[in-house]
Amino acid sequence: MRRDDTQGMTHMTHANHSPLWRAALLVAATCLLPTTAGAQGSALPLQQTACTFSGMVHELRGAMKTGSPAYRKYVLEQLKMAAKAMPAEELLAMVSQEREPDVLEALGKALVSKAGFVEDASLVQPLLQRAQGDADPNLRAAALKGLRATGSVDMMARNGNVVTYEQLIRDSSPVVREAVVGNLVDESAKVYFGHDKAVSETAVSTALASPDPEVAAKLLREVSMEQVGSETVGKLKGQLRAENPTLRAASATALGGVPGAESAGATGSLVELYRNEKDPAVRKAALEGLVRLGMSGARPTLQSLRGVAPAMDPEIDAWLAALNLNLQEWHLLLREKQRIRK
């Protein structure tokens, strides 16, 4: 493939939407599917057939029930590729009518793929409507999972924030709330590698909107905070006074990952938390946050906290011992501290 062809596919210019490009996609989406999917990935002869959505979804349905993981992935990729060129109406209708959670999730992924390709975020609205309003919580969760590991926060914003994660986290079903958390954690880690401000700040606002402290705490612990702004840092500081100790601890952990420009204020808040807190788990999280913020520069702060809560002094000593190893990477320092404090 020529360089300009590669750039065209990467950047999705208007030329990509030409009849020739659409035709090329249709050719690329020609199916090579076995007549029956092997449950253990058994080798079956492939037959070339023209792809239609109905035929591909029928094959997907069988793959979800009896196919190997590799075969399911293959069929899903075929569906996503075909979705870019096939008429949106057929896919939208299937998304609106599907009743099997696994198939709905796959159709959602295909719809999101098409929405990104044609640069029309409004295409995901039927998927978001199911995530918000379907009577079956498993289908609501499946619709949400269709957005996983994509730029869903940006897509929701470009769709006018008609449906948001802050709304969805209030769902009455745990499986839906878990899907919200999974989407934001994966998007932060796997799509933007912790470097997207909008995703991180959406995770904080979603956590604050959650009626479930455990769900909120999971978001704050697992989503990167390295790009958040001052306003969001202020919100995290406010959660250090939350009634639930798990939420206070998660907020302390989150504050440990804020940008360097916010580190002085975050350090002061964590020191105050450690001095006034009674829960050992929260104090432990505060120490971890302080070390992450300051790394080797955290030594004087840790030393100043010895004796505040004598039972916690072994935790401080473990951090000081780990810091003496002069490790420069946070994950290595954390691993060594955990080894020391077994």
Rank of each mutant, 00 (worst) to 15 (best):
T66S: 14
A266I: 05
A216P: 06
F117A: 14
N326R: 11
A121C: 11
A311G: 13
T253Y: 14
L139K: 01
S42F: 02
L33S: 07
V57T: 08
K109D: 03
T35K: 11
S152A: 15
M155T: 15
G38M: 03
T246H: 04
L104W: 04
E277M: 08
D196G: 01
Q48P: 11
R306L: 11
A70R: 14
H11D: 13
L333H: 06
V191R: 14
G182T: 10
V175P: 06
R2P: 14
E166P: 02
L46V: 03
I169Y: 02
E329S: 03
H331G: 03
Q40G: 06
E90T: 12
A37K: 05
V191D: 00
G67D: 08
A321D: 07
K337A: 03
H331E: 14
K342R: 14
Y274L: 05
V176Y: 04
K114W: 10
N138H: 15
P314T: 09
L46H: 10
L76T: 11
H58V: 03
F193I: 04
L273E: 07
L305G: 09
D186G: 05
A83V: 04
V291N: 04
A28R: 12
K84R: 15
P310G: 04
S96I: 08
Q129I: 02
L290S: 05
P137D: 06
L144P: 02
V204S: 02
K190D: 09
G238F: 06
G146N: 01
T49V: 15
L127D: 03
E214K: 14
P69K: 00
S172H: 14
A250T: 04
L128H: 08
V185T: 09
A254K: 00
R22F: 12
V228R: 03
D102Y: 04
A242F: 10
C31Q: 13
A254F: 07
V112I: 13
T52K: 05
A264P: 00
K190T: 10
H58L: 10
V181E: 10
S122E: 11
G133Y: 10
K73P: 01
L334G: 02
R341L: 07
R248K: 15
D120E: 14
Q227R: 12
V181C: 12
Q167F: 05
T35P: 00
S122L: 14
M12A: 14
Y71V: 03
T301N: 07
Y192S: 08
E315G: 04
P34Y: 01
E119H: 15
H331D: 15
K237D: 01
V57N: 02
Y71F: 15
A93Y: 00
Q328V: 10
R177G: 09
G194M: 03
M81L: 15
D212C: 03
D279N: 15
A142S: 01
T10D: 06
V112M: 12
S18R: 07
K84L: 13
K114T: 13
L139A: 04
